[in-house]
Design a protein around this nucleic acid. Structure first.
Length: 422
RNA sequence: GGAGGGAUGGCCGAGCGGUCAAAGGCAGCAGACUGUAAAUCUGCCGACGUACGUCUACGUAGGUUCGAAUCCUGCUCCCUCCA
């Protein structure tokens, strides 16, 4: 079945935007989606305190689903995170403590609220925790109930398993069980929520079909699996690294200004693709964007950054960023700090009413040692209030902060509003 | 259980008694050119003292030596082959 023949609006749109990698049964799913609202889920393990751009495609998927009148479920991996998914990894995951997992799960939920509408309505999103149905199952029960439905023969053919074996990397028994838990999730959700569709990244294919199979074995019902393509940047890397860190969706982990910059600076070749994947802008509109020559594409990049930032961080935050961008890139007022990420200069760095330049750059997060700060200065990339710093040993008086936060820059693109510790 | 090989900076990977803070590559940072892009070119890329310097580092604990990432011994972990 080619992507052009979809009849359900959801599949049609999502296919056109380039989300789809594989499906257990395109035709049947397409029919189901036309007939009635479908309940679908994606599982998220709480391995980090925030989601990052790599997860964005999954979130967008749920969002689209909701927009087309279906019901999205989010499963927090309270149980599965304790096991560790081996899919797509060469090494075992570092196991997290229970407290850490709980904390991460609480943190993750914030992000979903930005993208989805929650509630009790028929198409309202809902968050569930798979720990709820695993915590009371005994080992014997689990083995007796589900064990007979999984053959080792089949499990050994799973990509995630085979890859480890082929590379002679260890795969622990713990990890080997991950797919069973994820499969039981699907069954449990089918029973509790009439959920018949599981979405996920392409590396989840194995886990997903095992789950769909389990649903069929226990209930006779057809459950669907649909996976997304692995999104890479034009230079072939996984998405999501910028300025030394991951591109987090949570403003507590990455300032929205930096988030905006990440999208503003994507490779030319990625703009159209990303607009389709990460915004709600109609495909026809995206394709009509003027980008014939050189700099024209910058408008499209701004649109991309604006749209995504607005959906993840909100209108108000975006407005602040625009002020900062105007000041720092369009050169209106060189030392405006509005909308820039804030950093704090600890009082302890002040000696006799003066601050050393190197301390200023360390406090700003642009250098992790005095030596690094000096190198930055020597390289000509260090600026304070727009003025290039020449002297690696310069001392600045406290009066520098008299008017409020000070703009500190590393290179042309990284700016920070440095304020004095209270 | 036996035999052999290995563990080097964020990663890959050379070095195999002094000239080693350790080649080279990747990643990262800054500069130039541009369009806040890509490609290219230049510089930087352990910490502290602004160069020369000092300290900490080549799995881990000791030892030999004027001197060790380099040699020896114990330990830990990994790999290969045999059983």
């Amino acid at each position: 079945m080619t992507e052009h023949s979809f009849k359900s609006p959801f599949l049609k749109d999502v296919a056109e935007r380039g989300y789809i990698h594989q499906c257990t049964d395109f035709e049947a799913l397409d029919n189901a989606l036309q007939k009635e609202p479908v309940t679908a889920y994606i599982g998220f393990d709480a391995t980090a305190p925030s989601l990052h751009v790599g997860n964005l495609i999954q979130i967008m998927w749920l969002r689209k689903l909701q927009q087309y009148g279906h019901k999205p479920l989010i499963i927090m991996g309270g149980a599965t995170t304790r096991i560790g998914d081996p899919s797509g990894r060469d090494e075992s995951r570092q196991l997290l403590s229970d407290e850490k997992i709980e904390e991460n799960m609480r943190n993750l939920q914030k992000v979903f609220e930005k993208f989805l509408t929650f509630g009790d309505g028929p198409t309202d999103a809902k968050i569930l925790n798979n720990y709820d149905w695993f915590k009371d199952i005994s080992y014997i029960d689990l083995l007796r109930t589900y064990g007979p439905h999984f053959t080792i023969n089949r499990m050994l053919t799973m990509d995630s398993v085979r890859q480890r074996l082929d590379r002679e990397q260890p795969l622990t028994f713990l990890e080997f069980n991950y797919t069973i838990l994820q499969s039981v999730d699907f069954l449990e959700l089918y029973r509790r929520e009439k959920c018949t569709l599981q979405l996920g990244g392409s590396e989840q294919w194995g886990n997903i079909i095992n789950g769909a199979d389990l649903v069929r074995r226990f209930t006779g019902a057809q459950a669907f699996g649909l996976t997304s393509t692995l999104i890479t940047t034009a230079d072939g890397k996984k998405m999501g690294k910028s300025m030394g860190g991951a591109v987090w969706l949570d403003e507590d982990f990455l300032p929205p200004f930096d988030f905006w910059q990440y999208w503003r600076n994507v490779d030319d070749r990625d703009v159209i693709r990303f607009l389709k994947l990460f915004t709600d802008i109609p495909v026809a509109e995206i394709e009509a964007l003027p980008m014939a020559e050189g700099a024209d594409i910058n408008a499209a990049k701004t649109l991309l950054a604006d749209t995504i930032t607005q959906s993840t961080h909100g209108e108000d935050v975006l407005a602040e960023i625009h002020v900062a961008v105007l000041a720092n890139f369009q050169g209106t007022s060189g030392d405006s700090v509005d909308g820039l990420p804030e950093k704090t200069l600890p009082r302890g760095m002040i000696q006799e009413g003066q601050v050393h330049v190197t301390d200023i750059f360390m406090a700003s997060g642009f250098a992790s040692s005095k030596g690094e700060a000096r190198r930055l200065i020597k390289g000509g990339g260090a600026r304070i209030q727009g003025e290039t710093v020449q002297d690696t040993e310069a001392l600045y008086p406290m009066s520098l902060f008299a008017e409020g936060p000070v703009k500190v820059s590393s290179g042309k693109k990284r700016h920070v509003a440095l304020k004095l510790e209270d």
